[in-house]
Design a binder for these strands. Structure first.
Lengths: 135, 135
DNA sequence: ACAATTACTACCATTTTAGTAGGAAATGAG
DNA sequence: CTCATTTCCTACTAAAATGGTAGTAATTGT
């Protein structure tokens, strides 16, 4: 039931960009130093966030990343789901379009798990990046 | 953010005992067959539940396990936490008696994570074993 | 005595996590 | 135009966690 470093680091990157960015491009080198996260690992995480459209990037000297939107427009849940892949507590909750678990007919717990998935997502979706910065 | 097989299997064992037990001792062999879970793996999980006092056991022929209480007295959250170890989304939330994360002074997210921990535990604690059986 | 069952402990293959590593492509500065 | 700096892309890897297997001792009813 743990959030991996990818999820935690992703939030820290977003918080860092929101706090120190001010609309300018920030190099990963700087974020890496401030947040004490290996730059090569950061690259991978930021790449995912970038492809998802949450960041703007620029190469070359003076390059870096910046937020694509303002902090209150980022939903923490969206960011976490993007880098973590999925947050469903059990696999069957993630099943789609008609696929069902082989045990589904005798399963007593599916509604319990779906409910857990719901409260988790509802909670993390109730936070924006701005909320985190203001802590 | 996944619940491991230990947690899922533990719930299925408890549900099985509640459904087929009727106060009698049920051998793991039977539960293993009904639930299609390897008996040797079940032994480990059930051992944890037994040591926690949730089950009564008897050795020898006609031996097995039975619930130590009635289904409505079991809290699903308690069972899950017992077999899964901890359910905290990030390590620092589990810290106790004064131990703090080295980043705690610059951390914006601790309250967010604590809140997540709370909604998860509150939800799973709102279910009893009886609730699951009645699904 | 013996078959059936729990109790205990060690081991192990696979998957996931948390990185490392190397180089290509782009970009601004000089 | 060249060079330092930075993102972009892909492959690799050590360590930990997961999901079991395996063997054997102890207990109990028949």
């Amino acid at each position: 039931m743990r959030i991996s470093t990818k999820g935690r680091y992703a939030l820290r990157v977003m918080i860092d960009l929101a706090s120190f960015g001010n609309g300018n491009f920030i190099a990963l080198k700087d974020i890496s130093q401030r947040q004490n996260i290996p730059i090569k690992y950061l690259e991978q995480i930021v790449s995912t966030l970038n492809k998802a459209g949450y960041l703007n990037s620029m190469r070359g000297s003076n390059g870096g990343y910046r937020l694509a939107m303002s902090p209150e427009e980022y939903n923490v849940g969206t960011v976490l789901r993007t880098v973590e892949g999925t947050l469903t507590p059990v696999e069957c909750v993630a099943y789609e379009n008609g696929v069902t678990c082989p045990r589904s007919d005798s399963c007593n717990s599916i509604n319990f798990w779906k409910g857990l998935d719901e409260v988790v997502n509802k909670y993390i979706d109730s936070y924006t990046l701005k909320d985190l910065i203001q802590q």
